[in-house]
Design a protein around this nucleic acid. Structure first.
Lengths: 230, 230
DNA sequence: GGGTTTTGCGACGTTTGTGTAACAGTTCAA
DNA sequence: TTGAACTGTTACACAAACGTCGCAAAACCC
């Protein structure tokens, strides 16, 4: 287990671009990051660096992600380190097998960064409860990432998955204006093509959800630019 | 910032042929050129040469382009240097991520040289020594780019998209006189055809917006030349 | 497998912003 | 002082941007 500074996340991914993107986002979230591009390197780094969490690609050259996972989970000293598995949609059939090898969570590509970060925090909280308390607040709105619940005042709000991720994105940086493209990228995921106007519809749904028990509309439309919270 | 001769462009590209082609074309356009073939060299040259603009390949050995970009954009003394990212088509999905790391523009390979040169010129045209921070200030006017908000004194001003961009342009270089053509180019875009008198109308609208809660008119008309702030 | 929820999109109405022309006011030089 | 060039202002037709509704397909959940 790493020292009591920022949690160290080990990213194991053979595709360089994806590795960089993951690293960048994790660092932006305040984590320290170590990177490995194959199974051997990953196993070495686990011994050398003692990461607090591992993000592990399913498909890797030579020693596969599954194998890495299996080995770590059979060692007493590494068994407790949370592992989040990544896999392409076509490999989804192996979901059960992925969890069976001992992975703690499992994310299908293409994934939304917001969602992945939420899962990373959730896993870390399980192991290091103090370091990552994750409830976002803005005005009378409270968002609890772990339980996937949103409160406004005394009421619990009911919102769909996409609305939740939208709101989570907004609440990460209240006031910041997000373009439709940026929202599509963060909330929907990067490899997905949907019309930008779809964002408008979901903004509408989010607004309705946020005001279902009354209160002001906290979502601001910035003409020609995008949307923001507050 | 380099001397007041021709702008210096730093090309960072590991592939020698591409590096030469870029260098050749940039020199043909009248720029001075510095070349680096990896991230370390790039970071060194930035310190030694203070380039006015950087053309940066996304994928580089050891220190990646993303990493170089991130580092430069997190340093106060280099944050204002425009960075144009190059990436292969297969990495295109990471476009938004690329911009999020702080790159000012983004070009996908294979690109047309003409287009790239246009973008280089465009970026250089808007180099702005004064505006390093996220919020621009002039007198009692405050413009926050991230939240797209403009304040004057205690009041929040309401202005349309074009007025916002106009004001942002002015505030990047307070006192500088902009011709109608320059404003059309920066605020409206390079490929748009509109009458130059349209600028006058929008200047009028901006003035009204800036004075909607009283106060002096901060926009100065320079007869025969254009407009300026202060 | 059947019922429910969620999702993306087209369509339509509404709001807001935009470009232009026309005219009024201003400046400057001869 | 006068006229020509330049700028300020207003009105208006038009276009673009946005909000919302309903539907069909997909995903989800027993």
């Amino acid at each position: 287990m790493a020292a009591s500074e920022a949690p160290l996340v080990l990213v194991v991914e053979d595709e360089p671009a994806q590795r960089e993107v993951l690293g960048y986002n994790l660092e932006a979230e305040g984590f320290r990051v170590a990177k490995a591009e194959n199974g051997e390197e990953a196993l070495l780094l686990v011994d050398e660096e003692s990461p607090d969490l591992i993000v592990l690609d399913w498909m890797l050259p030579s020693v596969s992600g599954v194998e890495v996972c299996r080995r770590l989970k059979s060692r007493a000293d590494t068994r407790a380190v949370p592992i989040i598995m990544l896999s392409a949609r076509s490999e989804e059939v192996d979901r059960v097998r992925g969890l069976e090898t001992g992975a703690d969570d499992y994310v299908v590509k293409p994934y939304s960064i917001v969602e992945l970060m939420a899962r990373v925090r959730a896993q870390l909280r399980r192991v290091r409860p103090s370091s990552v308390g994750e409830t976002l607040e803005f005005g009378d709105i409270r968002l609890d990432a772990e339980s996937h619940r949103v409160y406004r005042g005394d009421h619990t709000l009911k919102l769909g998955p996409t609305e939740f991720r939208l709101l989570a994105t907004f609440m990460e940086k209240p006031g910041r204006v997000w373009s439709r493209e940026q929202l599509l990228d963060r909330v929907w995921g990067r490899d997905i093509y949907v019309d930008t106007r779809t964002v408008d519809v979901h903004i509408g749904r989010l607004r309705k959800a946020l005001c279902q028990h009354g209160g002001e509309d906290p979502v601001r439309t910035v003409r020609g630019a995008g949307y923001a919270l507050g």
